[in-house]
């Protein structure tokens, strides 16, 4: 193992053709809202709750509800008989039914005020706040190499400079691509995947490199920015996509396979 590595290392340094090193960042936004339960899960949940209810003992609140029901029945009886009620009213006090009505009204008011259940239907692909239940990943059309050339849809990447570690390159990549201040955490010093891209002959002759080795890092948005913008000098277009959309939009099966481990949900 070690020997073969050494041999290949020396071979690489001996040959004039080398590889360019790139760091690429899979910048993702974690799901904000929990996805709904699957059919199996919700059925099991419902039945489990029912079973627990059957096996449990009644709590004080339920006892009070039972007592209330008895009292209300007695009151109705007394009214039917045409007797004095004032004594009983004091005994009943505030029934649980009344309380529940109050609570329901308060909940409705709050719901009206804050609109809990409604997610803003932001479906434009540029919005970070779209698809709150899914994990989203940033893909870009990046200006690379020559002027005016814009890449197909790719994960943002940056060429490695001498003297910095790959992680620093990845950090620089996030910093330079985003137009606004962005707080994102890169996880770990080691890349989780690599993709080898061979240059076509003309580019290879021009750059003096056989191709590019792209090392992937994962990063998470630690806070979701209210407005997300990219740096127009480097990026011509961007999208926030989920796993299926990523697979559909980005070209190159091998490329996608190299980055697929960033997509666990």
């Amino acid at each position: 193992m070690h020997l073969s590595v050494l041999r290949r290392l020396s071979a690489a340094s001996a040959s004039p053709q080398k590889w360019e090193i790139f760091a690429s960042v899979v910048l993702s936004r974690a799901p904000v809202v929990a996805p709904p339960m699957s059919e199996v899960e919700s059925r099991f949940h419902r039945l489990q709750m029912a079973e627990e209810q059957e096996k449990s003992l009644m709590c004080n609140y339920e006892l009070k509800t039972k007592q209330d029901e008895k009292m209300v029945a007695r009151r109705a009886q007394l009214i039917a008989d045409g007797k004095e009620l004032s004594e009983l009213d004091e005994e009943i006090g505030v029934t649980n039914a009344v309380r529940e009505d109050d609570w329901k009204k308060a909940a409705e008011d709050l719901d009206k005020k804050f609109k809990f259940g409604e997610f803003p239907p932001k479906n434009e692909l540029k919005s970070v706040e779209r698809e709150l239940q899914r994990k989203l990943v940033l893909i870009v059309k990046q200006k690379l190499g020559e002027k005016g050339y814009s890449s197909p849809w790719i994960l943002p990447q940056m060429k490695h400079r001498d003297g910095e570690t790959l992680r620093q390159t990845a950090e620089r990549c996030i910093g330079e691509l985003s137009g606004t201040d962005l707080s994102a955490d890169i996880s770990g010093n080691a890349p989780f995947g690599v993709f080898t891209h061979r240059y076509p002959t003309p580019i290879s002759q021009k750059t003096g490199a056989r191709g590019a080795k792209i090392f992937f890092y994962t990063a998470n948005l630690s806070t979701i920015p209210t407005e997300f913008q990219v740096n127009p000098d480097d990026v011509t277009d961007y999208q926030w996509v989920n796993r299926e959309e990523f697979w559909k939009t980005v070209p190159g099966t091998e490329y996608k396979k190299a980055a697929k481990f960033a997509f666990l949900e």
């Binding site: 590595v5 290949r8 290392l9 690489a12 590889w19 090193i21 790959l166 080691a190 890349p191 989780f192 995947g193 690599v194 080898t196 080795k213 090392f215 992937f216």
Partner: peptide, 9 residues
């Protein structure tokens, strides 16, 4: 795999 590639580069 990625680390191995990096080691060689």
């Amino acid at each position: 795999k990625a680390l191995n590639e990096l080691k060689m580069l």
